[in-house]
């Protein structure tokens, strides 16, 4: 059984890694966009597994993007270093927010993260225009790898791999038991000597760094940032809907959800050019009401009955 699993994973990995050799530019582009959302969805789910609901993906995504672009403009160093810098900045900011808010019940944290994107947008707008480009944003001279789709794909694929590996390590490691005990019973976890607060902050910082990393890569790929586009509710909403649809509290649920919704989204965008976000909102409502374990849960139920 285990050998089979390893074999399937290796085959999937090889297929995904060698994709640029036999697919066209458009498909490759679509796939790496889906992979970005997939990384966001998995990282969001990791925090959810610790019992904390975040609406702030867009905020961290935007911070990562802005930090990377600003460093790029000021120093003009290697874009990959800028991407790392963006991720680290998102991690640092989340450390401050986590330290301030994670001691209390989940609702306070959730609302703070809901305000985060808007707050960061206000801050970026109010900082001197020479730093942030003001409402117009910044346009870089050149996209990363001079816009080469293959290398861009491998970059995003790499980020996705890091996210998946971290998520799986989380599930298998000692930390996971701590997290699960937090989720199941905070009082039991507390009385068994687990420092809930410390672990929550650690997890929040890791997932935020991942989200900042995706945001930074996104801006380096598109070569521009602006306060409205990079802090758009889009980046909070889509990963959330993907993870919920696929099935929360696992690595593979968000992966499935991202593939389904990502491909459907491409079609939807053609079908209704604006206002298609309503579909994602409806998906969130319907999944919560009727399919709380998502597609993964449905598959499990069907296979168990046999």
């Amino acid at each position: 059984m285990k050998i089979w699993k390893a074999f399937v994973i290796a085959a999937l990995f090889l297929a995904a890694a060698s994709l640029p050799f036999y697919t066209g530019t458009y498909l490759l582009h679509t796939i790496y966009i889906i992979m970005m959302y997939m990384s966001l969805a998995i990282s969001w789910d990791m925090l959810l597994r610790a019992g904390q609901l975040s609406f702030g993906i867009a905020g961290l995504f935007g911070i990562g993007g802005y930090a990377a672009t600003m460093l790029q403009v000021f120093t003009n160093i290697n874009p990959l270093i800028c991407i790392l810098f963006g991720a680290i900045m998102a991690g640092l900011i989340s450390l401050l927010i986590g330290l301030a808010t994670l001691r209390l019940r989940g609702i306070y944290f959730a609302i703070i993260t809901l305000a985060m994107a808007e707050i960061f947008r206000v801050i970026i707008r109010n900082l001197p225009d020479t730093w942030t480009g003001g409402a117009m944003g910044i346009v870089l001279n050149n996209a990363i790898f001079n816009g080469d789709v293959k290398q861009t794909y491998w970059l995003v694929f790499g980020i996705l791999l890091i996210t998946i590996v971290l998520s799986e390590v989380f599930n298998k490691s000692r930390i996971h038991f701590a997290i699960t005990s937090i989720r199941n019973d905070e009082i039991v976890a507390m009385s068994s000597g687990i420092d809930i607060f410390k672990w929550l902050v650690v997890i929040f910082v890791i997932t935020s760094t991942l989200q900042g990393l995706v945001g930074a890569a996104y801006t380096e790929i598109y070569g521009s940032v602006n306060p409205d586009a990079n802090f758009s509710v889009h980046y909070s909403l889509l990963p959330l809907a993907m993870a919920l649809l696929g099935g929360i509290r696992s690595t593979w649920g968000p992966v499935i959800g991202a593939i389904v919704l990502g491909l459907a989204g491409e079609y939807l965008k053609l079908l209704m050019p604006y206002g298609y976000l309503i579909i994602y909102g409806l998906i969130i409502i319907l999944v919560i009401l009727f399919l709380p374990d998502g597609i993964m849960g449905l598959i499990k139920k069907l296979t168990q009955k046999k």
């Binding site: 019940r105 509710v233 909102g281 409502i285 919560i288």
Partner: peptide
């Protein structure tokens, strides 16, 4: 759970906003 309630009303708000937008 509280998480489900938050997600649900968040989804509802979004649907209302987008319905108005449309």
């Amino acid at each position: 759970q509280e998480l489900n309630q938050l997600l649900l009303t968040f989804g509802l708000g979004l649907v209302l906003e987008e319905a108005a937008n449309l």
